[in-house]
Design a protein around this nucleic acid. Structure first.
Lengths: 143, 143
DNA sequence: CCGAGATTGCTCGTATACAAACAGATGTTG
DNA sequence: CAACATCTGTTTGTATACGAGCAATCTCGG
């Protein structure tokens, strides 16, 4: 199933939604890293979910933050190393590893929240208020 | 610089543009991987740029595909291993490593182009034609 | 109660992604 | 032309991201 010459020549990577999705994400990560010191976007996402849900299993935290079990394991490991989360095994279900915010983790989350919101603002800065609203609405349909 | 309690409680990760940008990108990568066999989105992007530009230096290819020199090195390495690109050193500038499509690389690119376009379509499928146009236009301002 | 199936978390392997430090080649400029 | 800056590609280390395969545990139907 090959393509016509004209298709091949007309294909412009820069116009591809997938490529631009990747670049927009790269840009957001860069902005976030600049504004939020000491936490990656994924680590911050994990703290946010723990703040929302309290003590939950590691895999559930992974699902809530869109990370598979292998990825969330590493994230939790690094958050534990920073003293931002605690984990303990569940007495009812001995498979489970309950994860929750430490006092320090809660404090760091609350402190960095402002910077995280600034990161969102700066990421969307090339758009007008109206456009940003539209963009976020459409984006939420693509997740 | 901490946050008010109300801010902390009101923060909803799922509504954050950055988080959704990451998830939308994950979804696109998954769709692309399902439809385009044997090539990652980044590998395909590199082939597309080489198809557009002919023989170019490895770092320049990296800039055209939004990868730093460490990342593009690995991508080119794997494309070489698959026999899709060739690389040789430039005689004029002995620092440079010129990279170009092999015949097989060009053929694979042309073959997979259709699937890549389908991936874009499926990624944007939750949107109407009109919304997709709007989304792509706004997205292109955020790269 | 028992065995099939599901779930939890782990490990390994591969592929981006990027910061930082490096050596070698090229360029620029006083 | 020599000093310096810049650019090339490489390497190392860290952090997602995910497929695949694994053992331990739980659930549920019979």
């Amino acid at each position: 199933m090959s393509s016509k010459r004209s298709d091949v020549d007309a294909y412009q990577l820069s116009e591809q939604a997938g490529f631009n999705l990747r670049r927009a994400n790269q840009r957001h990560v860069a902005i976030f890293s600049k504004l939020v010191k000491g936490l990656t976007p994924t680590q911050f996402a994990a703290l946010a979910r723990l703040n929302e849900h309290g003590a939950i299993s590691q895999n559930r935290l992974g699902r809530l933050t869109a990370m598979d079990s292998a990825t969330i394991k590493g994230v939790v490991e690094r958050l534990k190393a920073k003293g931002l989360v605690l984990s303990r095994s569940d007495l009812k279900d001995r498979r489970m590893r309950l994860v929750e915010l430490s006092d320090k983790g809660r404090s760091v989350f609350e402190t960095e929240l402002v910077a995280a919101l600034h990161a969102r603002t700066e990421t969307l800065a090339p758009l007008t208020e109206e456009e940003a609203k539209t963009f976020e609405a459409l984006l939420s349909k693509l997740v």
